[in-house]
Computed example of a mutant assay.
Amino acid sequence: MYIKKIFLIVVLLGAVGMGGFAWYVYNTAFSDNTAFNNKEAHVFIPTNATINDVVAELEPLLKDTESFYAIATQKKYTSNVKPGHFIITKGMTNNDIVNALRSKNIPIDIKFNNQERLENLAGHIAQQIEADSLSLLEAMRDPQFLETVGLNAETALSLYIPNTYEFYWNSSAETFCDRMKIEYERFWSESRLQKAKKLKLTKEQVMALAAIVQKETAKVDERPRVAGVYINRLKVGMLLQADPTVIYALKRESGDFDQLIKRVLYKDLELDSPYNTYKYAGVPPGPIAMPDISSIDAVLNPEQHDYYYFVADVTNFGYHKFAKSLSQHNANKVEYVRWVNSQGLNR
């Protein structure tokens, strides 16, 4: 009888112990371990991160990092950390969190437009993906890569068509550039190529001209008309005489792209630069900025008219007055110059 009692006690204690252990396992793996109030939290795990890096990243988001570590070890995640962008939702258990970090790298949307140089673009993209600006700039400038796209150092900015693109956050600089090559080739459809050919322009010339149009007017509805002016000038062999190209040339010459130049002076027109379209005929050797799609398509679909000149309209700011003759243009220009002088814009 005594032995039976002992046996019964041992069985009961074992049951209690097993129950306690089961409760511990359940509580560790399958109870809410999130400590944030928002609906979800975004977690970014760098390439080559260790489990300690992951725990440090998660610490502000979890109630208990030790229980997370225990489950991560049990599920062998500690030796197989994956880089990327992950989403943890409120109420997730340690088991859910490990599963999300192990297999649910969520793509992000990357956006860019109107960058003036590759340096600006690289810095902008580096704020959105893991790759740093230096590695991005090196990849963008890589001569071998540019050769595969048919571009060079002057035309390299043409590759990047402003839009929103889906990427994995842990994409490398090379991955980014390779994807942009695909998007560039997709953008230049047969229809767009035929339009460029009809205008007797290369893709690179279209992009360089579109950059000028972009700088000349912020009004999307006016861009085809401005593009038409430049197409007309090219057809008759006139100089483009675009002020934005002179401003770019001045910045390029000084190396200071942060300076603000509101007014082009007559002395500036003498600057010896291939980007000075008052001095050199034809389209500049490369884009002076990143044109958006509306500017590119404005060049490919220019408004048909007989205008060869335009100047800012001081009675309808943002738009321009267009002229067919130099005498008409000079009359329009008098009004503009009078307004500029009244504003005291010396530079």
Results as ranks from 00 to 15, higher is better:
residue 31 S to M: 08
residue 107 P to K: 04
residue 229 V to Y: 06
residue 103 S to Q: 04
residue 210 A to T: 08
residue 244 P to V: 03
residue 233 R to K: 05
residue 262 K to P: 08
residue 118 L to R: 04
residue 29 A to F: 11
residue 139 A to M: 10
residue 145 F to K: 02
residue 78 T to A: 07
residue 122 A to P: 12
residue 119 E to S: 11
residue 253 E to Q: 14
residue 272 D to P: 04
residue 4 K to R: 14
residue 213 V to D: 03
residue 73 T to A: 06
residue 142 D to N: 15
residue 89 T to I: 08
residue 336 Y to E: 03
residue 290 M to S: 03
residue 142 D to Y: 12
residue 105 N to T: 04
residue 22 A to I: 08
residue 92 M to I: 06
residue 223 R to N: 13
residue 121 L to G: 00
residue 315 T to M: 09
residue 105 N to C: 01
residue 275 Y to Q: 11
residue 159 L to T: 01
residue 261 I to A: 15
residue 319 Y to M: 10
residue 328 Q to D: 11
residue 69 Y to V: 11
residue 152 N to C: 12
residue 140 M to N: 04
residue 44 F to T: 02
residue 224 P to N: 09
residue 196 A to V: 05
residue 183 E to T: 08
residue 294 S to C: 03
residue 291 P to L: 14
residue 175 T to E: 13
residue 18 M to K: 01
residue 196 A to T: 07
residue 84 G to I: 04
residue 230 Y to R: 00
residue 89 T to C: 03
residue 65 T to F: 11
residue 198 K to I: 08
residue 114 N to P: 02
residue 118 L to E: 12
residue 8 L to F: 15
residue 270 E to S: 15
residue 301 N to V: 13
residue 61 L to R: 03
residue 300 L to Y: 04
residue 223 R to V: 13
residue 131 A to E: 00
residue 40 E to G: 02
residue 298 A to D: 09
residue 248 Y to H: 05
residue 339 W to I: 06
residue 19 G to C: 12
residue 179 R to S: 13
residue 186 R to H: 12
residue 169 W to T: 01
residue 110 I to T: 03
residue 223 R to A: 12
residue 261 I to E: 13
residue 241 Q to C: 07
residue 264 V to H: 03
residue 112 F to C: 05
residue 164 T to K: 09
residue 148 T to V: 09
residue 90 K to F: 00
residue 92 M to E: 07
residue 193 L to P: 02
residue 27 N to K: 07
residue 302 P to H: 09
residue 120 N to M: 15
residue 257 F to N: 07
residue 336 Y to C: 05
residue 118 L to K: 02
residue 346 N to W: 09
